[in-house]
Computed example of a mutant assay.
Amino acid sequence: MLPPYHRLEEFVPLTPAETRIAEGWTSSKRSVKRRHIIRREGDQVAGVFFLLAGWVGSSVMLRDGRRQIVKVHLPGDMLGFPSLSLVHAGETLEALTDAVICPIPNAAIGKLLMDNPRLATGLFLSTQKE
């Protein structure tokens, strides 16, 4: 299965070097079962996740205690990007189907921003379009 980089390439055609960087995101992939909580609202933010397969919901807790799904992520999406600038996650990420995610630590995102501005721009624009 080829990783779904189509979202990135919508804004920036990936060079071979950038493709290798994106492929590196899949080196620590992990399977999660349907209904598994990937990260809860309020958890410490250690990075983001690249969604390789499956569907994941992003939800927030409402004042009355109910939970509202604010986004449904599909393969190729970055999960948890809105909380990247926060210490504690602003949303809960839950697998809506069996899924495969690839954790990307904060340090790797920081390195990407410093060393690969073209790829970082594509990633930024992709997450904004979501």
Rank of each mutant, 00 (worst) to 15 (best):
S126D: 11
P3S: 11
A22S: 14
L84A: 14
D98R: 02
P13C: 08
A108Q: 15
G24N: 08
P3Q: 08
M1W: 05
K111R: 15
A46E: 12
V100I: 15
S31A: 11
V56I: 11
L125S: 02
G122S: 05
M78P: 00
R66H: 09
S27V: 08
L125G: 05
F50R: 07
L51E: 09
H6W: 04
A120R: 04
I37M: 03
M61R: 02
S126K: 05
L119I: 09
S85L: 10
I69K: 01
L125Q: 13
R34G: 01
A53G: 03
S28C: 00
V72H: 06
G76C: 13
F81A: 09
I69W: 04
L112V: 14
L113K: 06
T15Y: 08
E10T: 01
G42Y: 07
G122D: 03
I104W: 07
V70S: 04
M78Q: 00
V32L: 06
L62E: 15
P82V: 09
E41V: 12
E9T: 15
I37E: 01
I109Q: 06
K129L: 10
V32Q: 00
R7D: 04
A89P: 06
I69Q: 07
K33S: 07
D43C: 00
L74N: 02
R20Y: 00
M1L: 13
D43L: 00
G47P: 11
L74M: 09
L84Y: 15
S28T: 01
A99C: 10
E130K: 10
V87R: 14
K129T: 02
I109K: 05
E41H: 13
F49W: 15
A95V: 03
L14T: 13
G90P: 06
V70T: 13
S85R: 03
H6P: 00
P117M: 07
T92N: 00
P16L: 02
G42I: 11
L14S: 12
T92E: 00
V48D: 13
E10W: 00
T97R: 10
R7P: 05
S27W: 02
S126Y: 06
R66P: 04
L51W: 07
M61G: 01
G54D: 09
M78F: 12
Y5R: 01
K33Q: 03
I109E: 09
I104E: 04
S27P: 01
F124Y: 14
G65C: 06
L125F: 13
